[in-house]
Amino acid sequence: MREIKKTDFKVTEWSGGKTTELYILPEGADFSKRDFDFRISSASFTGTSSNFSDFYGYQRYILPLQGFIDVKYEGLYDRHLEVFEAEYFDGRWKTYSENSLDTLDYNFIVRNGSNATMEIVREAKEVKADGYKLYVFSPQAYKAELNGEVKEMNAWSLYIIEEDFKITDLKKPIIICKYK
């Protein structure tokens, strides 16, 4: 297990707020050059609307950690997202959003053809790695059992886990991004 702490995250400004990069693969890839396989990030907003960047060649997951997001896909459909409700969509879709001013989101962007998924865990359970690397995040501390030992998992840390583990105590949902 590897822990990446909040103090290690990369924070950058964007036109509508701040983006915090929790992890990018390969490590050291340049998000702006689109030379990554996947990226996990969280963004805050300074306004109540935003145009999403075109991520042709990628699939996207997004969910609010606080506030709400109304995503609107030009010519397709609209969807209202409350806290921990995830949306999965094609990164090339022309996407616009409206949100509450206090919105903080979570993003998982993966290259097309990748073997990846995202799961929201809402209760204590056994999590199977099944050959995936697991990228586990929660805005609140929780407890997990790894190799028979119960560990306190820190809020706002990203854990990279390559084996089965058990979530034993949580107060808010946990997000698990899986990639192989």
Rank of each mutant, 00 (worst) to 15 (best):
Phe165Leu: 02
Lys133Arg: 15
Glu149Met: 11
Val150Tyr: 02
Tyr132Phe: 15
Tyr159Pro: 00
Val136Leu: 06
Ala155Met: 05
Gly148Phe: 09
Asp164His: 05
Leu134Ala: 06
Gln140Trp: 06
Val150His: 01
Ala141Asp: 14
Asn147Gln: 07
Glu162Ala: 09
Thr168Lys: 02
Ala141Ser: 15
Ile167Tyr: 04
Arg122Gln: 12
Pro139Trp: 08
Leu134Cys: 04
Glu145Phe: 00
Ile167Thr: 05
Glu163Met: 04
Lys125Asn: 14
Lys151Ile: 11
Val121His: 06
Ile160Cys: 10
Arg122Phe: 11
Ile161Lys: 03
Asp164Arg: 03
Met118Arg: 08
Trp156Gly: 02
Asn154Met: 14
Thr117Met: 11
Met118Cys: 13
Pro139Lys: 08
Val150Ile: 15
Met153Phe: 13
Ala155Val: 05
Ala141Pro: 11
Lys128Val: 11
Asn154Thr: 14
Glu152Pro: 00
Lys143Leu: 10
Val121Ile: 15
Val121Gln: 09
Ile120Met: 12
Gln140Cys: 12
Glu162Asp: 14
Glu145Ala: 03
Lys151Trp: 07
Asp164Ile: 01
Ala129Met: 10
Ala155Asp: 07
Lys166Ala: 13
Ala124Met: 06
Phe137Arg: 01
Asn147Thr: 01
Glu162Arg: 06
Asp130Met: 10
Trp156His: 14
Ala124Val: 04
Tyr135Val: 07
Met153Ala: 05
Glu162Asn: 12
Asp164Lys: 05
Glu152Tyr: 04
Gly148Ser: 06
Ser138Lys: 05
Lys143Cys: 08
Ala124Lys: 11
Ile120Leu: 13
Ser157Leu: 04
Ile160Arg: 06
Ile167Ser: 06
Phe165Ile: 02
Ser138Arg: 06
Asp130Val: 05
Val136Pro: 06
Trp156Val: 07
Met153Pro: 07
Ile120Asp: 11
Asn154Arg: 15
Ala155Ile: 05
Leu158His: 01
Glu119Trp: 01
Ile160Trp: 03
Val150Lys: 08
Glu149Val: 15
Ala124Glu: 12
Ser138Met: 07
Leu158Tyr: 03
Val121Lys: 10
Lys125His: 11
Trp156Glu: 15
Asn147Met: 07
Tyr135Arg: 04
Thr168Ala: 02
Glu126Pro: 09
Tyr132Leu: 04
Lys166Phe: 03
Ala155Pro: 05
Pro139Leu: 09
Glu119Cys: 04
Ile161Arg: 02
Val121Phe: 08
Ile120Glu: 09
Pro139His: 07
Glu152Leu: 10
Lys166Trp: 03
Tyr142Trp: 14
Lys166Gly: 01
